[in-house]
Write a protein that binds this DNA or RNA. Sequence first.
RNA 1: GCGAGCGUAGUUCAAUGGUAGAACUCCAGCCUUCCAAGCUGGUCACACGGGUUCGAUUCCCGUCGCUCGCUCCA
Length: 583
Amino acid sequence: MENTKGSLDTLVALSKRRGFIFQSSEVYGGFAGFWDYGPLGCELKRNIKDLWWKSTVRLREDVEGLDASIIMHPAIWKASGHLDTFSDPMSMCRSCKKLIRADQIWDIFEDGDIKPALEAVLGDAGKIANWCKGRGRSLAVNLFAIAQAETQLPKIFDRLAACKDAKELYTLLASPDPDALVLACPHCGGEMTEPRPFNLMFKTVVGPIEDPANAAYLRPETAQAIFAQFNNVLSTSRQAVPFGIAQTGKSFRNEVTPRNYTFRSREFEQMELEFFIKPDEAVELLCGKVTTLTDNPDISGDPQPDWGWEVWHKYWVEQRKAWIIQAGLPQSSFVEYWQKADELAHYARACVDIQYAFPFGVQELEGIAARSDFDLTQHQKHSGKSMEFFDEPLKLAVKNLSDEQRDAFRAKTVIAWQAAGKDEAAANAFIDKLFEGRYIPHVIEPSAGVDRMALALMCEAYEEEKLTDEKGKEDIRTVLHFSPAIAPIKVAVFPLVKNRPELYEKAREIFKGLRSRWFTFWDESGAIGRRYRRMDEAGTPFCVTVDFQTLEDGTVTLRDRDTMQQERISLADLKAKLETAIG
RNA sequence: GCGAGCGUAGUUCAAUGGUAGAACUCCAGCCUUCCAAGCUGGUCACACGGGUUCGAUUCCCGUCGCUCGCUCCA
């Protein structure tokens, strides 16, 4: 049997044909970056989320759930850094790769005579109109926006975007110095890319008044809500660090290029866990040592109090890999990529990407980041509210130390912090707090995409099987090998033929009995083989067929999707059998 | 965001300056005692908006969408 995985195109076609995923707003021509999940797709997504929630929250004593609002106080995005970095036009230096806010470059230009000169030229609407004639629309829009000279000047970005064109315009109008309009990096003098609007967040207005002061954003990640509600969850849940807060929900990013089917969508769903841990210094004071990866600790069992952040991070990487395998991606189908030091975000100590081999390339499915205390520190700074955790055992442990031991600890810690580039005062402030039993927890963040997981599971499950029957006739069977836990339809019930009332009635009775427990599908039309194949394309693991023997001895045939084998099983045993297989 | 190509039923393909055919799918009926293939009938398409024209699915322009390459991806 020679089987193939099929291309992304064949998967997309099946996905539409069977009702997994539709293009958003299709009747109006579609809407790039947005997708709708049909009857089977929404079951699939629901099953993925349920499986995640069960393993992350329900089965763990140390994780609590949260379901926060999508639109939150804009100050959250100020604190998190999203607003500063990604809502302004940015320009990147081609040499030193530094990202610089476009208005900062503009400020540099203000030193010279570029700005007034440019504005003078651009202000001549008649010249611009002539020049724009026959040129690209976006260019004309940009230049006219500037030329219109409304009471408010157009946004700085619009002006800067026109710089390249303005240079040409300068030349055309015999400007004294067109070269002056080349954007130069203020750090190294290198060439800057054209400014781009990094407004990755969707902006909206809260309240009926259309005023910039009422601007708010759709969340670009679910994580920040968890940090913002850290204190509330902590104080109402009887948890203590280490513990986690989990959330699933929609997030929104104004992606520049939504491509590869649902992989990079502008609206997507995340499953995020923020797991709060003690800083290593606190672990050391409590346990007298910090277990690191070089100690080769056993991370397959319950977490241990002496684990440092490295071990916690590795622990969650392994937890997440186990879950992904459970969901139906074999170990061989994904890779664990440890980001190099220069790839890490400035606040991250380590980050592992779980990458799946999609048909369009090996791409990130989930990230597990060690984010230090960056997020809670930011929110403490911006909100003015303490994000510290009071660790009573820590306070007691410190109390039991001698003055010499405390001094030695302080000296050692200050040196370590200085080696990490932080100043002595910060180290001492941290140690003072620590000695009182207070610290800002660090965090390990496993962050997974529901849509990416659904797509990966569909890609992995998809197979075109070449079958040859006993007469030697070849046939291709398209089948989705979903694991029973995530399969949208768990079981289908068929009457072997539909024009025998007694058979039909018996099958309906069995169908209704199963439906109360699992998502069960009923199909009575066409040849039995055709019905089996329909269910293969939907990924339904089991089909129950009611035939004449059922009426005599109370047995049915149970057909397995993957092996296509059938077994006769008594109705009395059917539910127990399915319970074992599906769960 | 830039450049190139593409856009006809759910899918794969036709034809055409005079409003479109097929196969498979799907639906209904018949037949049918277990793996899509029998019979009969049926539903369903020119992405959207302008322009040229007596008339546009066809030619032109724009928008939207898709694919590829660049760019981007906190």
